[in-house]
């Protein structure tokens, strides 16, 4: 019984987390953000050999804003 409750808490947490991630990606993609497909929209690391750290810094500037 305890195991089942723990399982469902974990599953619910994962569902919320994934839902939130994909919702953010959806919004980023609709905004035309080229980093929409990446983890945390942190950098276009998915593209061939792109410069991730500079993009991360510019992104963090956006968050500060």
């Amino acid at each position: 019984m305890v195991q089942t409750i723990v399982i469902w808490i974990i599953v619910a947490f994962c569902a919320l987390y994934i839902g939130r991630r994909y919702y953010r990606q959806w919004r980023s993609a609709l905004r035309g953000d080229q980093n929409a497909g990446c983890i945390e929209s942190s950098c276009s690391c998915c593209s061939a050999a792109s410069d991730c750290s500079s993009i991360k810094e510019i992104q963090s500037f956006k968050k500060e804003k």
């Binding site: 991630r21 983890i39 998915c46």
Partner: peptide, 21 residues
Amino acid sequence: WERTWQYIKKAGTIILGISVL
């Protein structure tokens, strides 16, 4: 390293979450 780290992060977050679901 930047790109590899992003791969690891994605595996440890999104892929992990979807795998549990």
